[in-house]
Computed example of a mutant assay.
Amino acid sequence: MTSLVRYLTHPQVNIDPAIPVPSWGLSEIGRARTEAVASTGQLSQTTQIISSGERKAIETAEIIAAKLNLEVEVREAMHENDRSATGFLMPDEFQAVADQFFAQPQISVRGWERAVDAQSRIVREVERVLARNKPGDVLFVGHGGVGTLLYCHYSGVAIDRRHDQPGSGGYYFAFSRDDRRVQQSWRRLEDL
């Protein structure tokens, strides 16, 4: 049986414009969703949990790791696309800029990291972990933007926001480690 690789986006966070986005933590809802799924045993074949260095991803990974008695490996280069040039944007403005980010992957929109660069970075990090060839399933915990770029890569499709997770967080997709084929497109965390 082939090992499964899952990429999970952190669920809901506490939004605070006064705090840098990478330092936002999970909200009560995000934490409760993660704890509920961690208790199901659906991830029992997981032997590695790899997280972005952003607080919300680490908190998500730690909840799951505690149930599986695993350590979380933090890989700083798995962070969300670098949006520090604009900082926090109000939701409507953020969505408009995110649309441009995906629509023009070769261009830095308002100083954001280019989508092609973010995609290369997240693929490189995932492939470095998978090159270890450790037995068991692997769970990567990260973010919607780079998660979508990763999904596009392993699905063999061009960067496009139509391949984005359908909600605001707490979604996953899965691919087989052996042939890197996507086995499950975006699904809610609760569908693990």
Results as ranks from 00 to 15, higher is better:
Val123Leu: 09
Tyr151Glu: 07
Ser108Asn: 10
Ala158Gln: 09
Thr148His: 04
Val123Ala: 07
Val141Ala: 09
Trp112Ala: 02
Ile159Asn: 06
Ile159Arg: 01
Trp112Asn: 05
Arg110Phe: 12
Leu150Val: 04
Pro105Thr: 09
Pro105Val: 04
Arg114Gln: 15
Gly142Tyr: 02
Arg114Glu: 15
Val129Gln: 12
Tyr151Pro: 03
Val126Lys: 02
Ile122Gly: 02
Arg114Tyr: 11
Ala115Thr: 03
Ser120Glu: 15
Leu139Gly: 00
Leu150Asn: 03
Ser155Ala: 14
Arg121Met: 07
Ala158Met: 06
Gly156Gln: 12
Arg121Gln: 09
Ile159Glu: 00
Asp137Asn: 14
Ala118Cys: 12
Glu127Tyr: 11
Val146Arg: 07
Gln119Trp: 10
Gly147Phe: 03
Gly111Leu: 10
Lys134Phe: 13
Glu127Gly: 11
Pro135Trp: 10
Trp112Glu: 05
Val146Tyr: 08
Arg121Lys: 09
Ala158Arg: 08
Gly136Trp: 03
Val116Gln: 13
Gln119Val: 07
Ala115Gly: 04
Ala131Ile: 08
Val138Ala: 03
Arg124Asp: 15
Leu149Glu: 02
Thr148Val: 02
Ile107Arg: 14
Gln106Trp: 10
His143Pro: 08
Val109Arg: 02
Arg124Asn: 15
Glu125Arg: 06
Arg110Gln: 13
Val123Ser: 06
Leu139Ile: 02
Trp112Met: 07
Tyr154Arg: 06
Arg110Leu: 14
Ala158Glu: 13
Tyr151His: 15
Ala131Leu: 11
Lys134Ile: 13
Leu149Phe: 11
Gly147Tyr: 02
Glu113His: 02
Leu150Gln: 00
Gly147Gln: 03
Tyr154Gly: 06
Leu149Asp: 01
Trp112Gln: 04
Asp137Cys: 10
Arg132Cys: 10
Val157Trp: 04
Gly142Gln: 01
